[in-house]
Design a protein around this nucleic acid. Structure first.
Length: 224
DNA sequence: GCGACAG
DNA sequence: ATCTTGTCGC
């Protein structure tokens, strides 16, 4: 299995160059192993944006019951720049994932996967670094265009950029803002959409992401 | 030069 | 992401 390693201490120009050379390593292929557990990572900011709290959760793929949780606090090293979100959030999220007692079989990431200007959003980048397949679940569009999405749950349309399908805009709840789903790594777009709908049972966001997001919010209050 | 722009 | 109460709609 191929996984990457590199420093996160880079300049914006170096970050862009890194994304360009790594994008070609993403594998859009069908899942090979059974998915028994699903995880998610998210984060929140502390101390006026000086520190980041990353959270990671693991749930049973069928029960959607939490099996494990972990978190990590780290200093923020880069400002938010559209397209370079990864270099701001990924280091802390990787630390939180490393604290988990068990690794999930599939990981949902808050942000874009291949639906990125250079085809390497945070979900794809983390997918190259980690061993399990990943899915990018973004709440809004970073790039690409698409037709109007049907108003009911399950409706979806292709997200296109420069003539290629980079993701899918998916409605997970009737009359609620759609999600921008894209391949992270080691999964197909169809499977990514299917797992998103399968885990977004009661709300717009998939349960694992909701749990990770909620945990980040609680820690933000608790850690000041 | 003028917008767009994951979280 | 973050600053924040009540309120509209399914």
């Amino acid at each position: 299995m191929t996984t990457i390693r590199h420093t996160w201490d880079v300049t914006p120009a170096e970050a862009i160059a890194l994304q360009k050379e790594l994008a070609g390593r993403v594998e859009q292929v069908r899942l090979t192993a059974a998915v028994e557990t699903i995880g998610a990572v998210d984060c929140a900011f502390l101390a006026g944006g000086k520190q980041i709290v990353a959270t990671a959760v693991v749930m049973g793929a069928k029960s959607l019951e939490v099996i494990a949780r972990a978190y990590a606090v780290a200093p923020v090293k880069m400002a938010y720049i559209p397209g370079l979100l990864t270099f701001r959030e990924a280091p802390a999220e990787l630390e939180a994932l490393a604290e988990l007692p068990v690794e999930p079989d599939l990981l949902l990431v808050d942000g874009a996967g291949r639906a990125h200007p250079r085809r390497l959003g945070i979900a794809a980048h983390l997918g190259l670094w980690l061993p399990m397949p990943t899915i990018g679940v973004a709440k809004s569009r970073l790039c690409g265009e698409h037709r109007a999405v049907g108003a009911t749950r399950g409706s979806s349309v292709k997200l296109l950029d420069e003539g290629e399908v980079i993701g899918k805009v998916v409605r997970t709840r009737d009359h609620v803002q759609p999600l921008y789903i894209s391949v992270g790594n080691r999964i197909t777009l169809e499977e990514a959409v299917a797992w998103t709908l399968r885990t977004a049972t009661r709300t717009r966001l998939p349960e694992p992401i909701r749990a990770a997001h909620h945990m980040a919010g609680e820690l933000k209050k608790k850690l000041a």
